[in-house]
Amino acid sequence: MPVSRISKAFENAKAENRAALVLYTMAGDPTPEISAKILENIAEGGADIIEIGFPFSDPMADGISIQKAAIRALENKMTLKKTFELVRNFRVKNQNTAIVLMGYLNPIESMGYAKFAQNCADCGVDGVIAVDDPPEEDMELRTGLKANDVALIRLATPTTDEHRLKKVIKDISGFVYYVSVAGVTGTKAIDTDAIKDKVSLVKSAAKLPVAIGFGIRTEEAAHNTAQLADGIVIGAALVDIVFNAYKDGNDCVKIAKDFAMRMKNAAVKN
């Protein structure tokens, strides 16, 4: 089931002539209870795949929005173990939306690779992205996930050349996450013209769907990016919108759902 749930998400979107919508949210942010509701509601709003961030104390590849979300999540006592519970509860009602865990390696290594992969399979996690675990180092994670039919998803970036790309796309399944800018999450805006050629290169090499992320904050950017890729990933923009609404006492769950609906509509292909 797991890997195929991701493939299904891309197939469905393609059948509807749009890019798949991948939304990122941090487990436990702004509170553990609201976080659970956000998962349900962004799925209802139109997310085909949800990337759930599990917090790490030292998020070296993240910009300020997701750094702060991680700190809030840790203050709320969120852990990797509790992130699995969040997914398990989500799966009681939802069997269709694909779930990808995204984070840093140390909480995974601390849990143990075999146990982590087993937990993924048991709780209904379909794929995993470990930001600081490049192909040269991810044998343990790769082996564990493969044994449990959970997708290993890697990032390809503007600095990944053709030679290196071969290494990046080897052994992965589900999709390729193309990082649109050299930078941390949520800072530089995407420039779709600049990445066009690179994205086609990744698409033809990988024989897997390609989702583009980093720097998509507006419907216009979502629409433009959707023309290039099989999926679009939005993270920091959603994290900010939800937290600002929560802070101001507004209904952040409904705002998150509306955001998902708007972005799904924006992701339609011309």
């Binding site: 070296m60 590849a61 390696l105 930001v131 600081d132 675990d133 490049p134 040269e136 180092e137 890697r154 990032l155 390809a156 970036t157 503007p158 600095t159 990944t160 050349d161 290196r164 990046v168 990082v179 050299a182 930078g183």
Partner: peptide, 12 residues
């Protein structure tokens, strides 16, 4: 030891 960095930095 090892090289546990984000893909963007691997080529560097």
């Amino acid at each position: 030891g090892g090289r546990f960095v984000a893909e963007t930095l691997m080529p560097n």
